[in-house]
Design a protein around this nucleic acid. Structure first.
Lengths: 134, 134
DNA sequence: ACATAATGATACTTTTTGGGTATCATATGA
DNA sequence: TCATATGATACCCAAAAAGTATCATTATGT
C-alpha cells in the first residue's frame, strides 16, 4: 500500500520541474523525458492539473504547460486530492461497505487519528519545499 | 488507499475478541460471526496468526484459538507486519521499480518521514488499547 | 495558406493485487 | 467412531491501478 499513487507521484515531479523553470512554458515531452515518465500518461495527468487550476495549458506549436500558482501554494495534499480524492487512510474495509457500527468502531477511531496527522503533513509540504533540496 | 488491508483489519478484530475472552479457546466460527467476517477467510488468517506466534491453535472438537501473548504486547504494527509486510507508505512507485536516483529522491525522503510517524503510532497502539473502549 | 507540433477529449487494454472459495487431510473430545 | 474443529494448499474473481491509442483542435513559423 502506498500513500500516493502514480498519478500523484508523476504530477508532483512535473510540478517541481515547472517550478524550476519559473513559470516558463514546458512541453509534456520534455517533462516526461526528464523524469523518465511515460509521455502519454503524463499528458493526461497534465490535462487534469489544468482542469483543476494548478497549471495553465498553451496549445499549438511551442505550446506546453506552465504553473498557475506559486510553488509554495501547491501542497501535496491538494495534488493528492485531485488524483486520489484525498488521503483516505482510515477507510472502512468492512465486508459489503460499512461496519455495522461505524460510529463506534474502535479501530476506525484510531486510524482516523493517524490519518489526521498524515494529512497535516501533506498539507504543509508543498512544491516549494522541494526546490532547494535538489 | 488504506493503511491496513482486510487481513490486518480482521486479524485485529479477532484478536480483540480473544483478548476479551481472557485466554479462553474460541472457535473461528464464533469469531467470524461476532464481527460478520467471512469464516473461511478468517480461518486462514488465524492460521497465519498461529504460525507467527500470536495465537495458539487447538485442534479437534471443542478446538479453536486462544491468545499466546498479553493484549498489551500485541501492537498493530506487529499485525500489519505479518499481513502486509509492515507499513510501506513511501514505496517507490517509479516505472519498472526503482527511481533512477533512489538515494536522493526528494519525494521519497519526505514520504519516509511521514511513514516513520505513522509506524510509531501503530507500534504504540496495541490490542489492550481497545479493550476499555468497547 | 499550410505543414508541423503541441494539447483536448475519450475510449480502450493490460497488469496487479486484494479479497475470497473450495477441498482434502488431520486431530480430538464425547 | 462420528462430529467438529484446524492444517495446508490451490485456485478464482473482480476491482483498481497503470498505461496505450486515436482523432480532433489549436497555434506557430515559414
Amino acid at each position: 500500500m502506498s500513500l500516493i499513487n502514480r498519478n500523484t507521484d508523476y504530477a508532483i515531479r512535473a510540478l517541481v520541474q515547472l517550478a524550476q523553470k519559473k513559470g516558463k512554458v514546458v512541453a509534456v515531452a520534455q517533462l516526461a523525458k526528464a523524469e523518465k515518465m511515460p509521455q502519454p500518461f503524463l499528458r493526461r495527468i497534465m490535462q487534469v492539473l489544468c482542469q483543476n487550476g494548478l497549471v495553465v495549458s498553451h496549445q499549438g506549436k511551442k505550446g506546453g504547460f506552465s504553473l498557475r500558482k506559486k510553488p509554495a501554494e501547491i501542497s501535496l495534499g491538494e495534488i493528492a486530492r485531485v488524483f486520489q480524492g484525498g488521503v483516505d487512510i482510515s477507510q472502512c474495509l468492512f465486508r459489503n461497505f460499512g461496519c455495522h457500527n461505524r460510529q463506534n468502531c474502535f479501530l476506525r477511531k484510531r486510524l482516523k487519528k493517524i490519518e489526521k496527522i498524515v494529512v497535516s503533513e501533506l498539507e504543509r509540504t508543498n512544491i516549494a519545499s522541494f526546490l532547494t533540496e535538489r
